[in-house]
Amino acid sequence: MAHTVTRLTRFNMTSLALGLAFLYLPIVILVIYSFNASRLVTVWGGWSLRWYHEFFNDRAMLDAAWMSLSVGAVSATLATLLGTLAAVALARGERFRGRALFSGMLYSPLVMPEVISGLSLLLLFVALNAERGFWTVTIAHTTLTMCFVTVVVQSRLSALDRSLEEAAMDLGCDPVRAFLMVTLPLIVPAIVAGWMLAFTLSLDDVVIASFTTGPGSATLPIRIYSEVRLGVKPEINAICTLVIALIAVIIVVASFASKLSSARGESAAPL
């Protein structure tokens, strides 16, 4: 029977279930322990919001959280602008001089070890005599995350039917108007998803921020990292759970946006 070869076997199901459990169990355990009343991380002392209370009274942590949120928002916005422009140039610009260098510069940060990106940006900022703090971290994060935005938006643009833009131009639109009125509305969901991805990446980064920030302006991951090096603290469990909750909201919005994006793309294609 040929059918046996393509069937979902018990082995397939088991490896899938174990794999997903492996990915999710540690996070679930972390979230549960953040509600632990006991100071000893591993002894269950009943449910409590004590550590959340502690976090909201920790001035230094709150400052770091605020710094991270604002760096994330500003850098994600810049990255979305620049990344979308880059995606348009790559997906619609045909051949142009320096294209290989351009795409090389945009793709290599995706796999570049963070220690190298961080160190090199710091050396630039020192050479420029820039005061290190909010703006240097923001610039560093923009540089890294715009590459991710480019990938997301470019793949959406490549999947779009180009005859839509061409039809608009045949009907008398100039290219800029055709882009603004036809292309842009169709890629808005991808742009939203790109912004979300950029924001979460910025919220996650320790290494690049450690290199590019100055004294007195630590981001949340830098603070978490220095606390974690000293050992597990229940307050950190609470902060991590809050960050996970924020990211969960972002994922829901982003996946909703991309669902909208593919639905529109499909309905637009037969036109």
């Binding site: 422009l85 945009l106 090199s120 630039l124 923009t142 061409e166 290219p175």
Partner: peptide, 30 residues
């Protein structure tokens, strides 16, 4: 139409190009 569309699309590369040269390529020289 595709060729006409490509020209302004190429211009979109200018800002991200400059940004990446300044904040990705030049730092390596340092």
């Amino acid at each position: 139409a595709r060729r006409i569309f490509a020209r302004p699309a190429r211009l979109a590369a200018i800002a991200p190009y400059l940004w990446m040269v300044l904040f990705f390529l030049v730092p390596f020289a340092f």
